[in-house]
């Protein structure tokens, strides 16, 4: 009995440490899930005189993708977004985050533009309202304007097919 107690304590510690090691500390749960998407109105990337606002997307399920031409990981996820846009399943609105307009437009010309429209957030103020701290980030926003999902970092095909698209489909039915 007295000999098994240290063993049990050790086993419990191993489980705790094991779980701790398997967690990714850079994935911080967003407090915005199931909350209304923060309101914004931004000049459009391609046309500074026009604006894009979250209220323009009311009644639709949409993806809100934070990107920048200086962001290396964005380049990694970009082909996936271009492909998704081609399939016409869900509109993708871009948030061009702390980027130079000319550089951003050139980036889209080179790599393809999957966005219905991109807002130009040069100061990163809208990004702050959305709790952006690492680009790229992607939000799934439902018809009522509630955030239902947040992806931090590039979307992988796995995440897209197993998490995001089934969720979009479910939200579109409601």
């Amino acid at each position: 009995m007295t000999r098994t107690i240290p063993l049990v304590v050790f086993a419990v510690l191993v489980v705790f440490f094991g779980v701790g090691l398997l967690l990714d500390p850079s994935k911080v749960p967003s407090p915005l899930i199931d909350k209304p998407a923060p309101a914004f109105t931004l000049p459009q990337l391609h046309d500074a005189s026009a604006t894009i606002s979250n209220s323009d997307m009311r009644g639709k399920v949409w993806l809100f993708n934070v990107w920048a031409s200086w962001c290396v990981a964005c380049r990694q996820e970009h082909p996936l977004l271009v492909d998704l846009a081609r399939r016409n399943i869900v509109p993708i609105v871009g948030l061009n985050y702390k980027d130079e307009r000319a550089a951003a437009i050139r980036w889209l010309q080179d790599l393809g533009d999957p966005y219905t429209v991109s807002g130009h957030d040069i100061e990163g103020r809208v990004g702050m309202d959305y709790g952006v701290y690492g680009v790229p980030e992607t939000y799934v926003i439902d018809k009522q304007g509630f955030i239902r999902y947040k992806q931090i970092g590039p979307i992988s095909p796995d995440v897209l097919n197993n998490d995001i698209l089934p969720l979009v489909e479910r939200l579109q039915k409601t």
């Binding site: 911080v28 749960p29 407090p31 709790g131 701290y133």
Partner: peptide, 8 residues
């Protein structure tokens, strides 16, 4: 800040 980034 907590509203945006959470308790973390």
């Amino acid at each position: 800040l907590v509203q945006r980034y959470g308790d973390f």
